[in-house]
């Protein structure tokens, strides 16, 4: 499932346009800018979606919806409010979660999540491939969470489970799930140095 690919190309001669610049150009109807934005972000967007949906063709369907939405709503993107990649990945995650919950019966999902549990953990996977800087940073930050926090955050974000599903799965009260998710996010935010 891991594929070698070109990430954002390093250009020596000429500074590449930032993703924010590209998105701003897309907002004015620039289709070439959209193509470049797509080329530079599609593997990441699809990677996130596929992490939740597993199935490749379904993941591509959702990725297509996401990029179409990016094209249509780029006019609404405000560079002052955050990075372009944050805006895009937030949209992709929301849509992937919606698809997970819409398309899977609970039994299918249990099977799917069960399979994921046997996949190697975050750290092992990362060693097998060229590891991105973000990947290393996030893996390090996740390692600073308590086991219980990490489990809850990963089930929510990478599993697409709702807090009540997490509660049922771990046999703990919903209130406890919410607290773990919030505490986990506070620690991740601090470890990752996210500043307002």
């Amino acid at each position: 499932m891991l594929v070698t690919m070109t990430r954002e190309p390093e250009r020596v001669e000429q500074a590449p346009a930032s993703l924010e610049d590209l998105l701003t150009a897309v907002a004015s109807g620039d289709r070439a800018a959209f193509a470049e934005l797509y080329d530079r972000t599609a593997p990441r967007v699809l990677g996130l979606i596929k992490r939740l949906l597993i199935d490749h063709s379904q993941s591509e369907e959702v990725a297509q919806e996401v990029f179409l939405e990016i094209w249509q709503t780029a006019t609404r993107y405000q560079p002052t409010k955050g990075a372009a990649v944050t805006w895009m990945l937030t949209m992709a995650h929301r849509r992937a979660v919606d698809r997970v919950r819409a398309s899977q019966s609970s039994r299918d999902r249990d099977v799917r999540i069960g399979i994921r549990d046997y996949e190697p953990g975050f750290d092992q996977v990362s060693e097998a491939v060229e590891v991105s800087v973000e990947h290393q940073r996030v893996a390090k930050a996740l390692a600073r969470l308590t086991e219980l926090q990490r489990q809850a955050v990963q089930l929510a974000y990478y599993g697409g489970l709702s807090h009540s599903e997490i509660a049922a799965r771990l046999s703990i009260p919903i209130g406890t799930v919410k607290t773990r998710l919030r505490d986990g996010m506070i620690r991740l935010r601090d470890e990752l140095g996210v500043v307002p």
């Binding site: 690919m5 996130l48 955050g82 990075a83 990945l89 937030t90 996977v125 990947h135 893996a139």
Partner: peptide, 15 residues
């Protein structure tokens, strides 16, 4: 922003 970083840490997949 923090959640998006989790998102950017997944393995890229070639479309």
């Amino acid at each position: 922003d923090t959640a998006a970083l989790l998102g950017s840490a997944t393995e890229p997949v070639a479309p």
